[in-house]
Design a protein around this nucleic acid. Structure first.
Lengths: 150, 150
DNA sequence: ACACAACTGCCAGTCGCTTGCAATTGGCTA
DNA sequence: TAGCCAATTGCAAGCGACTGGCAGTTGTGT
């Protein structure tokens, strides 16, 4: 599950930003919680709960519980790129949406405003306010759509 | 997991169409297989494997295996509307894409050509050939987006 | 430095499948 | 129309991704 480099702003500039956001919401900063935040920050993109757990040698349970809590409080969001576990990422001012290519298993992030034309088309045509933050857009990338050897 | 009524053509007109397609591909028609097809046909929309199994009093294993085989041969496809099990539906000449509202848990089918403008926009802008056949488009419907009581 | 809710690890359980295996069966063939 | 055999089935077990209960530990306001 690799991500193309992000040229635009990260959700939070520093871990302290995230911790501050956490504090503002009256949440505690336990050791585990801090480590989870650090892992999310270090990942610079969506990462599986189990990955965080194994990297930090934490029990998965606590990681899930922290992610769930952080998500409930809007600091984190999970996305599904394809089959497989949900992937978690920090949320901040700059939100992301994803386009995932099942061919090569890679995803790229997209600044939401770039999808606004799509959103407004669907809104007008069908009345739905769609977002690609929970399920990625799924489609073949240029490389995978091109027949091999050409 | 309810679906808005489909006004357009069903994937196959009759079960026999599906059985014929199956035969053309050299597949056997076991009792279980026929029952699964009938269930898919009767459902008139995406249905969970476990639902089929319990309705038909079949073991889930066989249902999964049949669905997987039918999917491999292009007679069936599964879609994810939200969290929860994958939902299976017959595929035929008229393919569907889905828009799912997590607010009310309902989905509507969309004829693919109605999403062509979206597809071509994304193709031009990002180079991806997207389809909404595996993950549904997710967004609030008009009713759920409207603040209650207004 | 205390009190106590929040949080943790551990363990067991659930959901949605998937796999291995031995018994059965659909469908071509003699 | 009986026989053959790969395809298919049911059963049991296993697996990945979580979820929930509980008793012990820890952050934090006072």
């Amino acid at each position: 599950m690799t991500l193309a480099p992000q040229t635009h702003r990260l959700p939070f500039e520093t871990i302290d930003d995230a911790i501050e956001a956490l504090r503002r919401r009256g949440l505690r900063l336990s050791m585990t919680r801090q480590l989870v935040l650090e892992a999310l920050f270090a990942a610079r993109g969506p990462i599986a709960a189990e990955d965080i757990a194994s990297r930090l040698r934490l029990v998965a349970t606590s990681v899930y519980r922290n992610l769930e809590l952080l998500e409930r409080h809007g600091l984190v969001r999970h996305v599904h790129l394809g089959h497989g576990p949900g992937l978690y990422a920090l949320v901040g001012h700059g939100e992301h949406e994803y386009i995932y290519c099942p061919g090569c298993g890679t995803a790229r992030t997209v600044r939401p405003e770039l999808l606004d034309p799509v959103r407004s088309h669907i809104k007008k045509r069908f009345g739905y306010e769609v977002r690609f933050t929970h399920f990625a857009l799924v489609g073949q990338c240029l490389r995978c759509a091109t027949p091999a050897g050409t």
